[in-house]
Design a protein around this nucleic acid. Structure first.
Lengths: 160, 160
DNA sequence: AATTACGTATAGTAACGACTGAACGCAATG
DNA sequence: CATTGCGTTCAGTCGTTACTATACGTAATT
């Protein structure tokens, strides 16, 4: 997956290409993380341009439907990546990139992993006396998740 | 689906339920991580039962098609979660849970994050002199990924 | 050889999710 | 009021993907 494509259209400004490319790549990366591609593109746009911006403007910026922008912006708001701000005198909703967006994302991640730990716990408490191997492997798995959780929490702390 | 929801046999129907439930929940969690649900169920089965087991046996254990088991087992093998072992005298392929499966998973995660960093770098080097905000936010994002990468690497080290 | 037992490749299906376009509700403006 | 502009909701479409069924290749058994 190497992506340095620089042979077509010669005299085009590379600057704008870099920005558009980043947005697109970030949308792709978001897909990898289980988020809709548009959500990733929105986030990429905010990394570059910061905001605040209205939904309709953002829709035309990324050339997608207003509906899609609306749902995905609220999704990102729920994840703590975007915050809704009111601009005095303006009727529209404006979105802005949150204060520490990545910390917010990690918090959701921690929450999911804690759910996994709970799942492991209910397995362990349901095991019989004979299931030595299963208990051992389940505990190993739990240790992994707990290590990941505490480490992630420390990252969150270092970002805030 | 007719499960065992009776109370006639005073045995321990709860035990088996716990195991089956764990497998199913783990399949669900895998979906969240972008893996096929069956891959997650396979992994859950191995956490409980360890292995080694042949593909056809595993297929009947999880009651899915042999083809699906085959592809997903190879997927997990590629991720470093399962290892193929040969049992002397047996013709079949046997799979076993790998030594430190979670460390392997995290390595893949690190790799993906490094790709993101590369993406950010190419954005930064494409920014003009005026894009102060963008450069600042991009650097912030890069710092986040780098922190996550080093922390994840330390987890990997602690698991190996 | 013929047959059996296994893993894999392939085509087809069924379900899922992202995204769009058109309606709706609502507030502010004319 | 009527209208305009906004965000949201909802039905529908399109593409993707997990999973199955079938066919295939191969190695061991007979």
């Amino acid at each position: 997956m190497s992506a340095k494509l620089n042979d077509d259209a010669a005299a085009v400004p590379v600057r704008e290409d870099a920005k558009a490319n980043f947005i697109e790549q970030h949308g792709l990366a978001a897909k990898q993380d289980g988020l809709p591609r548009i959500a990733g593109r929105i986030m990429g746009w905010f990394v570059i341009n910061g905001g605040p911006i209205s939904l309709t403007e953002l829709a035309s910026e990324l050339s997608v439907s207003r509906a899609s922008i609306s749902t995905n912006a609220r999704l990102l708001e729920g994840l703590g990546v975007l915050t809704r701000v009111a601009i005095p005198g303006e009727r529209q909703d404006f979105y802005q990139i949150a204060d520490s967006p990545y910390a917010r994302l990690l918090e959701g991640y921690v929450h999911r992993m804690q759910g996994n730990v709970a799942n492991i716990d209910s397995l362990i408490s349901g095991l019989g006396k004979g299931d030595h191997g299963a208990r051992h492997r389940a505990r190993q798995m739990k240790r992994f998740y707990e290590a990941a959780i505490t480490n992630t929490k420390s990252i969150i702390k270092s970002l805030s």
